[in-house]
Amino acid sequence: MGVLKAAWWIARKDLAVEIRSRELIYTAMFFAVACLLIFAFAFVEGRTTIRNAPAGILWITIVFSGTLALGRTFERERQAETLRALLMTPVERPAIYLGKLLSLLILLGSIQVVVVPLVGLLFGAPILRAPFMLMGLLALGTTGFATVGTLFAAMLTRTSSRDVLLPVVLYPMSLPALVGGMQGTLWIFAAEPNYELVQTWLAMLVFFDAVFLTLALWTFAPVMGE
C-alpha cells in the first residue's frame, strides 16, 4: 500500500471515530466560542472592537482550540490502547503521521468554518473582503501549526504530563506559521488593506509549511521508534 493511500485510510478511521462520537468537534467548538467571549471583554471598547484586534482574536482562538483538539486525538488513541496497534500496522511511519495530520486538518478546518464567521459577526471583522486570501492564510497557517502539533502531540502521548507540555513545546515552535497567519490576516482586516503584503505572507507560509513538514516527517520515525 502506498504511503498516501495508507495515510488516507488512517485519516478516514479517525474521522469515522469522530463522526460517531462528535466529541472533539463539539468540545473544541464550544471552547472556541468561550474564548471569543473572553476576548470580547478584553478587546471591545464601548461598542467597537479595538483596531487590529480581530486578526489576533481569530488566530488565538484557532490556536487554543487547535491545541485542545491535538491533545485529545492522541489521548483517545492512548485510552483505547490503540496507539500501539496503530504503530504496529504494516505501513510506513510517515503514513501514520500524514494520516493523523490529515484528519486533524479536516477537524480544525470544520472548527474554523464556525469560528471565522463568528469573529466577523461579533467583532465586525471584514471576513468577506478578500475571502480567498483569508482562506489561503487560514489553510496554510493551520497546516503549519498542525504539522508541528501532530508530531509533538504524538510523541507526548507517552509522557506523564502531556496536557501541560504540549502547549509549552508547541507555541514557540510553531511561531513562524502563526506569525504568518496572524500578520496576513491583519493586513486583510486593516483599515487600509495591503494585499501585496498578504501575498508575501502567503508565500512565506508555503515555505514554512514545507520546512515544517520535511522536518516532522524526518523526525517522526526515530521519535516514535520502538
Binding site: V148, L151, M155, V169, M173, P222, V223
Partner: peptide
Amino acid sequence: VLAAAVGFFG
C-alpha cells in the same frame, strides 16, 4: 528521546 526531538527541531 522526545526532548531530543525538541532540541533538534528547535
